[in-house]
Simulated scan of single mutants.
Amino acid sequence: MPILILAAVVIIDQYSKHYIQTHMLPGISLPVIDNIFHITYVLNPGAAFGILENQQAFFVIIALLMLCLSAYFFSRIPQNFRLMRLGISLLAGGAVGNVIDRVQTGYVVDFFDLRIWPVFNVADIAIVTGVGCVIYTLVFMSFSFENQEN
C-alpha cells in the first residue's frame, strides 16, 4: 500500500505538471474562481516561498536523504500506526515528484494559486499533508502513552 500511495502521488504530480507545461506559458494565470483561486504557471527555482533559489544540488541531496530515512524507518513503524505510515508515504511521493523536476529542469513547476499564498503543486500538497499526518500521529501517540502510564 505505501508504494502505491507514493507512486500515485508521483504520477498525479508529474502528469499535472506536464499538462500545465504543454498547455500554458510561464507567468500565465487563468482564474478558476476570480481573485480566489487561479491556475498560474510558475517556474520555482527555490523551495517554499521561493527561499534558497537555485540551490538545486542542496534540494536534491536533502530529498534523497529524506527518502533514505523514510525507507529505513518505515519498516519500524508499527502496522497499527496507519496514519503515520500514510504520512511518510505522502512525504516520500511529494519529495520524489519535486526532485524529478529539479533534476530534469533545475526548477519546480507550480500552478495552484490561492492568491494569498505562494503558488504550489500536487507534490507540495502531498508533503504538507504527510507532515500533518506525522505530527498528528506523534502528538496523539505521545498522549496515549502518557495516559497508559497513569
Rank of each mutant, 00 (worst) to 15 (best):
M1A: 12
I3F: 15
I3V: 13
L4Q: 11
I5L: 15
V9Q: 03
I11S: 13
I12R: 08
I12D: 15
D13V: 00
D13Q: 01
Q14T: 05
Y15A: 12
S16E: 09
K17G: 13
I20C: 10
Q21T: 03
T22A: 07
H23G: 08
H23I: 01
M24T: 07
L25A: 12
L25P: 06
L25Q: 14
I28G: 12
I28H: 15
V32I: 12
N35S: 14
N35Y: 11
F37R: 00
H38S: 11
Y41T: 02
V42R: 08
L43I: 07
N44Q: 02
A47T: 11
G50K: 02
N54G: 11
N54Y: 11
Q55E: 15
Q55F: 07
Q56A: 14
Q56C: 07
F59R: 00
F59E: 13
V60F: 04
I61Y: 13
I62A: 13
I62V: 14
A63M: 03
M66S: 13
M66I: 08
L67R: 04
L69H: 08
S70Q: 09
A71V: 10
N80T: 08
L83W: 01
M84L: 13
M84G: 06
M84V: 04
R85Y: 12
I88H: 07
L91P: 05
G93H: 01
V96P: 08
G97Q: 03
N98M: 01
V99H: 01
R102Q: 06
G106I: 00
V109Y: 05
V119C: 10
V119L: 11
V119G: 07
F120D: 03
F120T: 01
V122D: 14
A123V: 03
A123F: 04
I125T: 11
A126I: 02
I127W: 02
V128F: 07
T129A: 15
T129V: 14
Y136K: 05
T137W: 05
V139T: 03
M141K: 08
S142P: 09
F143P: 02
N147T: 10
E149A: 09
E149R: 05
E149F: 07
